[in-house]
Design a protein around this nucleic acid. Structure first.
Lengths: 132, 132
DNA sequence: AGATATCCTTGTTTTTTGCAAGTACGGGAG
DNA sequence: CTCCCGTACTTGCAAAAAACAAGGATATCT
């Protein structure tokens, strides 16, 4: 599905947010410190290699992520979130907030949720710092 | 895809948030005042009848929406968001906030975005009131 | 020089989605 | 009372997407 612009903000976000594999990739980049193709592949979610390659390409096309060759490994590629991608953080925070309320088996640390709710800007700065 | 619980909040939300048709149905219920099967069908998004029926069933199974027969029309069914579904509002607000920044063709009124950013609780109350 | 790692691509199968037609039933019109 | 329309779907089939398994190109390591 291509990005169809008809002015609706929810529909605008669908190409990324309405796709489970894209959400998981963004999660891994944003919160799990995963940056390489192999790390996404072995994240335990069961994604197929052709789908992973496809989603990475789409996210790059949408300027959500950016890829660069790893200087230390000529064959490796490092993926990172762009500013547009990092600006998805409030959405991810909201999802975590909602899930903490409705998932009785959630494993997010209480301190994380507390900070997420009370000081989201501070939490955001910490996460941004850890991604540098 | 069934709801697989492994403690991750993003993954927990995937069955709903990682599905474009579910997001659009929630949007229509939450912000567009659409409550009937026929209204979702003719929202202009191109959904097929079997997919709409399937997604409504899934959202009901997940306790996101609730359906009741329309007292005024014996054959009509009214769909509405449950408390769990209404609690998705901050997520939808975040998506709109993000889209307003990155969609140069967004049609969300400026006043809506302003209130969304400055007084989300007030906006939430207004929307809840309009859904009663 | 050969083996391994890395990031994919390719071909095929399976699953999901979209399309078109049809169904069951309640209510309204005549 | 009967017929027709509206409503919410279901069904069968075709098309598209996803999943599976194997393989390829290339850089790095031993």
């Amino acid at each position: 599905m291509s990005y169809e612009r008809n002015g609706c903000p929810i529909r605008f976000g669908l190409g990324i947010l309405g796709d489970k594999w894209s959400l998981l990739i963004i999660r891994d980049l944003m919160f799990k410190g995963r940056r390489y193709y192999g790390e996404f592949l072995s994240a335990g979610e069961g994604i197929s290699t052709n789908i992973l390659a496809d989603r990475l390409a789409r996210l790059e096309d949408a300027d959500i992520i950016h890829k660069t060759p790893d200087p230390a490994h000529g064959k490796k590629i490092v993926y990172c979130l762009t500013e547009k991608g990092l600006d998805l953080m409030p959405i991810m925070f909201s999802i975590m907030d909602w899930a903490e309320k409705y998932d009785d088996q959630t494993e997010v640390p209480r301190e994380f949720i507390k900070e997420l709710r009370n000081q989201p800007k501070s939490l955001r700065r910490k996460i941004l710092a850890s991604l540098k």
